[in-house]
Design a binder for these strands. Structure first.
Lengths: 124, 124
DNA sequence: TGCTTATTGTTCATGATTGAACGAATATGT
DNA sequence: ACATATTCGTTCAATCATGAACAATAAGCA
């Protein structure tokens, strides 16, 4: 499934991890790298090595926070937002294809189950 | 989830990918590396780099096929089988914990759905 | 204020996985 | 039988995520 997403994003020159970054910055502009790493469930260093690629393509901008000069505030550029919305169409088509095998109620049920399973695994 | 499995296997000194190898060799003794790679959905080179660790620990044995000298026949050693059965207990406990959130019928339903979804994604 | 501790982002070495290129062994076609 | 093509396993470089160690900065407290 991750694989299918990868090929679906190829036309946009994006990799799954990069799409995750763009999506989270779209919802929460001005995020710090630390918070972004926690949202994505990856290490901080991962973000550090992921951003330069997006920055060179002018998809995101990094600016130092005025109050806390340790923090880098991340924002989507206009181009980044445009590319994201474009890529989300491919993403949506993929989701729809995956969901085409089930009825909406079944999708909801499965989603609810996944949450319960994740909870069950968190508490050993 | 992959993460939970990783920590569950730590006491046995195994990593998730290694458990996959042992499980498949238990079911299909004498498998070739190529077939094993296809079963695990990984590249052949991955198997090549995964096996030496298991071979040094005397968990699997590699022998050249008599008829086709390109093929390496893979078998579980007695120690490998013992370790596998041991590790499967931890694995089973994990599965049970994950499934504790659902009824058996729901588990079956989810399994069936996953198959349909995978099929839907394979045909673009 | 001055000292200690925490937090943020970076760097580095490590391990996992991939894909391409390769040599050896076998299969296929003429 | 012989040349060609295919298959199997290996090697190598490249990519990616991880965790530990680090410098810079800020927060907490005497």
């Amino acid at each position: 499934m991750e694989r299918a997403l990868g090929t679906a994003l190829q036309p946009h020159g994006l990799k799954p991890a990069q799409l995750d970054v763009l999506m989270n910055l779209y919802r929460h502009p001005g995020m710090s790298q630390h918070d972004l790493a926690r949202k994505l469930l990856v290490g901080r260093s991962n973000i550090t090595m992921l951003l330069p690629q997006l920055e060179k393509r002018e998809l995101v901008s990094r600016e130092v926070d005025g109050k806390d000069r340790r923090i880098m505030r991340l924002t989507l550029t206009a181009g980044g937002e445009a590319l994201l919305l474009d890529a989300l169409k491919s993403y949506g088509a993929l989701i729809e294809k995956a969901m085409s095998a089930s009825t909406p109620e079944q999708c909801d049920m499965i989603g609810a189950h996944m949450l319960r399973v994740a909870d069950a695994l968190k508490e050993p």
